[in-house]
């Protein structure tokens, strides 16, 4: 999948990245790597290509391998292209007890893809994840910044329709939707 734009942070993002590196003591700015990778992933089509990782290394003045080894360790970093909406369904303990398998099977059928695959139109990627800390509101899934809880199949259908209609890329760094407390 070709990147839609040049691999370069815009001025505003670059200023944010520079500020982030100053949160740590002198010489310890590598600490900002994970937060910056989140920003890079959101900025460059939802995944971290080798080129994007090399760019982050150059901005942070660290070795590319230091970026690769971190990006490959954490489950939220995608090292392959993903659809605009990465649907992450929790499959652990309480979510499983309360029907996560149904949610997953339903989504596979509805999107006509298996877990780990991306729909032909590039809109959806389906992924199963381990406990997201939402066990009291199981079953649940995460899309971008948002937690969708107390799911049933009807709710899942509505959400999928909405995402499709909006057609937007979802990122963890997005402004979250309002939540009722």
């Amino acid at each position: 999948m070709a990147l839609t734009k040049e691999i370069r942070f815009n001025d505003e993002t670059m200023a944010l990245v520079q500020r982030m590196m100053k949160r740590y003591p002198e010489g310890k700015h590598k600490s900002a790597l994970i937060p910056i990778l989140h920003i890079a992933q959101a900025e460059f089509d939802g995944w971290l290509s080798p080129e994007v990782m090399d760019y982050v290394a150059s901005v942070m003045k660290i070795q590319p391998i230091e970026v690769y080894e971190v990006a490959s360790f954490y489950s939220m970093f995608n090292l392959k292209p993903v659809g605009k909406c990465l649907i992450e369904v929790c499959r652990t303990s309480s979510c499983w007890l309360l029907g996560a398998e149904d949610v997953i099977r339903h989504l596979e059928k509805k999107l006509n893809i298996k877990v780990g695959e991306t729909s032909a139109d590039g809109m959806f990627t389906l992924k199963t994840v381990e406990c997201l800390g939402s066990c009291g509101t199981a079953p649940m899934m995460q899309v971008g910044a948002d937690y969708y809880e107390n799911l049933n199949l009807e709710k899942v259908d509505q959400l999928v329709s909405r995402f499709k209609a909006e057609g937007k890329r979802k990122s963890y760094t997005d402004q979250p939707e309002p939540r009722s407390l």
Binding site: S31, I34, H38, E66, E69, V70, F73, Y74
Partner: peptide
């Protein structure tokens, strides 16, 4: 960025230092 192990305090510190 998604890793249960980072709840272990020394893994957490490694992660906070920008490492695995």
């Amino acid at each position: 960025a998604g890793a249960y192990i980072c709840g272990e305090e020394t893994a957490l510190l490694e992660s906070l230092e920008g490492k695995r």
